[in-house]
Design a binder for these strands. Structure first.
Lengths: 264, 264
DNA sequence: CGTCTGCTTGATCAGGGTCAACTCAGGTGG
DNA sequence: CCACCTGAGTTGACCCTGATCAAGCAGACG
């Protein structure tokens, strides 16, 4: 809303604003008013791009919430991410020149269009921009690596807990409250994202609520004990059998009845 | 082995060879013999880079097999990928300027060093190279997305099956046999990669062996029925309850005793 | 030749998926 | 305005997949 200006009845952003959105330290040398990127608005439920569609532009989220999904051979959706302000969409299309995922608006959205050709050409002139591109793609990769680690190693409770913490941090850095916020996605979508069923997500939220870690009312989540959420991990504390990679938890771990919590 | 030349007692590759390795259509305009990239050899078990180590170079695998791992807060390894010939390593370091994963040689390896600064500078001159960079990073991203989809939605059997198929395809495109090959990693590493325990991996391989899908002898795998492996999916065929996304499996699916197989 | 690591196989158990019933909020149309 | 419908969410009962624990085996190596 703050970024962008009217021009011919449309919103446009300059390079500086784009860099700010992406948290890229932009040299002011590039505050070029002639270099403008167009905005596009999407309404809730609209598709930004679909799988297989020819790729030619990247998107940056200026406002709103989305999901990106994969669709398997049986038509089942698999949620890959929940992009929000400052995130980039469409990077997966660069390789094959066709988007390999689908992006859907979970709320009314304002996106900035970045024609890929134009962007790379600009990158050769403005090195910050080039660095931005590499940086954003690398960040995305690291994020997905973390996701893989989570799916491969964590229990259902831990996944939901970390999901909430991550969301809270995103809201914080967007200037919203990190203690009380609204989920923009359904339990089903959360479950798909975390590799769980909607029932498990629902139950886990209820459990957290009872223990006092959070408060739940429909889509409204209140974070009560973010520390506990952060340190929550798999229930059977996977006590290093065999070779302790780092000899640490040798003591009996006398956590009495903490079958849900596990102190660090 | 074919790529690279001796010079001052070391191996070097030119841009063309690098592009070939990455399957990038390289304009021969860049067959510049002055632009050479150095090779480095690693022996089995050696670490290419570690988590947190300052980033400044990318690597391309010229020969050999590796694994990249994440290490969680309790010292547990989580395998992220098994890079082999033509794969790029270290991309995750670009964002924070520190590697966020660790790469270990599973066999003796020959890697090509790509100093990142030098690479991006070159990219501005040779557009193919720039495209290569974006393309490789995007491909990596797509690969990880597929991984997330797999971890989030597939059964143990399906994961192992697809792992074998993917390996076979990699070997094929490297010129080796796709029907008979040697695993370079332990059951434990496979399990970590697939989000399973080593016991489950072992049992699943044994089961495939008994059914005649593959032959197993220690690290030697023979692919007998790659079609069946490809179409294997979750055991309870998740018969589209509620809304059939694509109304299909309405007929009784008279697969007799196929509790392990699931025809498309 | 003993030891160690990787692998297999068996027995047991529980985390979380599946199925089902019910509630609740919002949208629609008579 | 209210009856109705639909989709989201909650909760319970049950059971299966895959983790855990345990034992035994084979090849590599000092």
């Amino acid at each position: 809303m703050e970024a962008g200006r009217q021009r011919q009845g449309r919103l446009w952003s300059n390079l500086k604003e784009v860099c700010d959105l992406l948290h890229i330290p932009a040299a002011n040398s590039i505050a070029n008013e002639e270099l403008l990127f167009q905005h596009v608005q999407f309404k809730t439920g609209q598709r930004i791009h679909t799988i297989g569609q020819p790729f030619d532009t990247l998107y940056i989220v200026n406002s709103g919430f989305l999901k990106t999904v994969l669709i398997d051979e049986y038509g089942n959706e698999q949620v890959l991410s929940f992009p929000m302000k400052g995130d980039m969409l469409g990077v997966d299309g660069i390789h094959t020149r066709h988007y390999s995922s689908e992006a859907v608006a979970l709320s009314d959205c304002d996106l900035i269009l970045l024609p890929f050709k134009k962007l790379t050409a600009l990158g050769r002139i403005h090195l910050e921009l080039e660095n931005m591109m590499y940086g954003v793609m690398s960040r995305e990769l690291v994020r997905e690596q973390a996701m893989i680690g989570m799916l491969g190693a964590l229990s259902a409770e831990a996944r939901v807990a970390r999901f909430l913490v991550a969301l809270a941090e995103r809201f914080a850095q967007m200037g919203y409250s990190s203690k009380l916020f609204n989920l923009r996605m359904t339990r089903h979508e959360i479950g798909s994202y975390l590799g769980l069923t909607l029932e498990t997500v629902s139950r886990t939220l209820s459990a957290f609520n009872e223990i006092g870690l959070i408060s739940v009312d429909q889509r409204t989540i209140g974070i009560k004990d973010s520390e506990a959420l952060k340190t929550l991990r798999r229930l059977p504390p996977s006590r290093t059998r065999g070779k302790p990679a780092t000899g640490k938890s040798k003591g009996g771990d006398t956590v009495p009845s903490g079958q849900l919590l596990a102190a660090l």
